[in-house]
Design a protein around this nucleic acid. Sequence first.
DNA 1: GCTATGATGAGAACCGGTATCAGGTCCCAC
DNA 2: GTGGGACCTGATACCGGTTCTCATCATAGC
Lengths: 183, 183
Amino acid sequence: MRTGIRSHGGTTVAPAWHHPQETAGKSPETPMATSQIEQQVMLRLSSAEVRFTKGRRLVLEAILRSDSRCSARDLYKDLEDEVPLSSIYRTLTTMSDLGIVVPHHGTGAIRYELAEWLVGHHHHLICRSCGNIEDIKLTEHTESIIDGLVSTAAEERGFIAANHYFDIDGVCASCARADNSTG
Amino acid sequence: MRTGIRSHGGTTVAPAWHHPQETAGKSPETPMATSQIEQQVMLRLSSAEVRFTKGRRLVLEAILRSDSRCSARDLYKDLEDEVPLSSIYRTLTTMSDLGIVVPHHGTGAIRYELAEWLVGHHHHLICRSCGNIEDIKLTEHTESIIDGLVSTAAEERGFIAANHYFDIDGVCASCARADNSTG
DNA sequence: GCTATGATGAGAACCGGTATCAGGTCCCAC
DNA sequence: GTGGGACCTGATACCGGTTCTCATCATAGC
């Protein structure tokens, strides 16, 4: 676990947390426009001497098109006979190592979403019933309270905090309604 | 995803979030003693009409012995030629459905830890470098602040919050030291 | 254009987890 | 105690997601 470097028979890059933008925990107040995101991704790829090939562009565009986090298979559905599944996996691994996308390990397949430095800092409402995950942005005031709690808890233990997860788990509005009406 | 009921060729039970102790989000201030946990687990199993067999007892004891969250394979290492791997998987599924253990999907295998109603509410410091996860308990005051943030964020969106995750990701003290000394 | 290096594509291999099913165990009624 | 039914176990086959392999292709630099 120490090195964090994976190969997959292709490009080998440094793990995400070696990128200053991640560890600083800074992310834009408002998400970037799609074209701007593509620019930023190209920059990061080139700074890691990784080519922005057709396959990688197609995968990135598919991720941008999809409104929620997506698995390799989801992307493959979108990109069938344009990019083979193995290349999608490879691209996701590369982009994850470069901190462009973030993997979410849950039930079933790993799902990826764009990193916070591209789409802005956010949290999640996770529905236990339908499994849906809603992204939420908290107010600046709330975030500053959370930041305070994080730094206190971390500093007390000699831990260097880089990021925090503040996710809420429960039952979403529509499932709660459905559950009420069916008993 | 709706029903949450899995079979696995064995016992079929209601999913964890149907148990009042979970959804109420209440957990003891201080963790129970081992024997007391075993008592509580027996109670929950019997209330679900699931037997506390030798295999299940051995798996539970192995979980109690291990100081951190463990995977089916970890337990198998401990219980080799006492409980076969397939039975360990089955037991973990059963206990997870009954809300006795909680699965953590991460890199690699699913790792299980005892549910909060048995070991108390806690949060995590996750080291990106060595992968170690440290359990931390926050002060009552801090928890009440978090509870406030949770209910505000949830209520605004018609979401019924049952639990929250407040985990901090970064570099642990020992990895930070190692990283400094090696450059 | 040539060459070194990186990237791709197809498919095999791997691995964690689940399903199947025969056989064993336990509980309860009689 | 014994017979029956429900539950549980153990061995193994199977499945789906992911990674590896390797031949081939593309690109940048000379």
